[in-house]
Amino acid sequence: MPDLARDGLGRRIAYYRSVVRPKMTQQRLADVACVSLGTIRKIERGERGVTDATLEAIAGALGVDPGRLRADRGRAQSAVQAALPALSAAIAAYDVPDDGPVRALPELRTAVSEAERWRLAAQYTRIVRDVPGLLAELARAYHRAGGERRCELARLLVSAYRSADSVAFKFGARDLSARLVELMRWAVPEAEDPLLAASVAYVRTETFFAAHAYASGLHALEQALGAAPSPNAPLEIVMRGALHMRAAVIAGRAGDAPAARSHLAHARLLADQVSEGVYYGTAFGPDSVRGHEVSVAVSLGAEYVGQALDLARDWRPPAGRRRNVAVVTTSNSPAHNSGPGLRSMRSSR
Rank of each mutant, 00 (worst) to 15 (best):
F169V: 09
D175C: 11
Y279T: 00
V96T: 08
C151H: 08
D95S: 12
E222R: 15
M245C: 08
P229A: 07
G63P: 01
L4K: 07
I237G: 01
E236M: 07
D3N: 07
R103T: 05
P194K: 04
A228I: 04
H219M: 02
A224C: 00
P194L: 07
E222L: 14
L108V: 11
F208S: 05
H292W: 12
F171P: 01
S338R: 05
M1Y: 11
G285T: 01
V158R: 06
T51L: 01
L270M: 12
S338V: 07
A259V: 08
L84V: 15
G281E: 04
I250H: 04
C151T: 13
L183T: 02
P85I: 12
G74Y: 03
H266W: 11
V188R: 06
Y16D: 06
A233H: 12
E56H: 15
V289G: 00
L195C: 14
D98A: 10
A267M: 05
D99E: 11
I58S: 08
A122C: 15
G285R: 01
W315L: 13
V167F: 01
L153I: 04
D314H: 09
S18A: 15
Y202R: 08
L138N: 05
N332S: 08
R73A: 09
R150W: 07
G339H: 12
G133F: 15
R117V: 12
W118R: 13
H292G: 03
S295W: 05
Q27W: 10
T205S: 07
V274H: 02
P286H: 00
R290S: 15
A141V: 07
D98S: 05
R174S: 04
G277C: 11
S295H: 04
A71R: 14
G146R: 11
Y304L: 14
V131S: 10
P66I: 08
E236Y: 01
R119I: 01
R240Y: 00
S333L: 03
R316L: 10
N332F: 00
T329H: 02
V64S: 06
P231L: 06
R290D: 14
G301P: 13
A326S: 12
A267V: 11
Y15D: 01
T54E: 06
D272M: 12
E47P: 01
Y15N: 07
K42C: 06
W118I: 05
D72W: 10
A121C: 02
S163W: 02
R316K: 15
A197E: 14
M184F: 04
L221D: 05
I250S: 03
L183G: 01
